[in-house]
């Protein structure tokens, strides 16, 4: 509002205006920071909780698994296939030319160095999510000796790669590492 008193003391007016603007900016900035900080806990509360995270990795002992045997573990709500392959299964997987593969990937990319008898896969068919057969002794293993998905007929080989059927990708290898010769940590 026009006020002759203010106009007369113009220099004071400038300082007052400067201080006022700074005050408004400081208050506004601090409020914005506060509001953003206040929102974060609510958003973060939707992230996985501590008990969920505690189950996000499992340690698995490989000792009880015999050569040629497959065992299923539960990891993050999904089945994980751990197969101790025979030498024949390994060489069969290695002998496949890349051109024959629907999702080209070499066998040694799917196992850990020096531990190629151990195959660790997420046992969920990459087509529409069924659990393939092949873990138990009497199960159908499909035409390539690995796994067979009964839902729509996908065949996986001894490296868990898709060879025939509607699935587009190989059975995924979850993140895992060897803690010792007979102990792995998945996830």
């Amino acid at each position: 509002m026009p006020d002759t008193a203010h106009e007369a003391n113009d220099s004071h007016g400038d300082v007052d205006e400067g201080r006022r603007d700074f005050l408004y900016m400081a208050t506004g900035a601090m409020s914005a920071v506060g509001a953003a900080a206040a929102v974060w806990p609510f958003i973060d509360s939707m992230n996985p909780a501590a008990d969920t995270l505690a189950l996000s990795s499992i340690e698995v002992s490989l000792a009880p698994i015999a050569k040629g045997q497959s065992v299923t573990f539960k990891w993050r709500g999904k089945p994980v296939f751990v197969r101790r392959r025979t030498a024949a299964e390994i060489s069969e997987a290695r002998a496949v030319p890349m051109d024959d593969l629907i999702d080209p990937e070499s066998d040694d990319e799917r196992v850990k160095g020096g531990k190629d008898e151990w195959l660790v896969l997420v046992g969920v068919c990459t087509h529409l999510g069924c659990i393939p057969l092949g873990q138990k002794a009497g199960d159908a293993k499909g035409e390539y000796g690995g796994w067979f998905c009964p839902c729509h007929g996908s065949h996986y080989d001894t490296s868990g790669r898709i060879r025939k059927g509607p699935a587009p990708l190989n059975l995924p290898v979850p993140p895992y590492e060897f803690l010792s010769d007979m102990q792995i940590k998945i996830g």
């Binding site: 005050l23 408004y24 208050t27 601090m30 409020s31 506060g34």
Partner: peptide
């Protein structure tokens, strides 16, 4: 506390 003081001054 700081923000409230700023709000008061504002």
């Amino acid at each position: 506390l700081i923000l409230t003081v700023l709000l008061y001054l504002t």
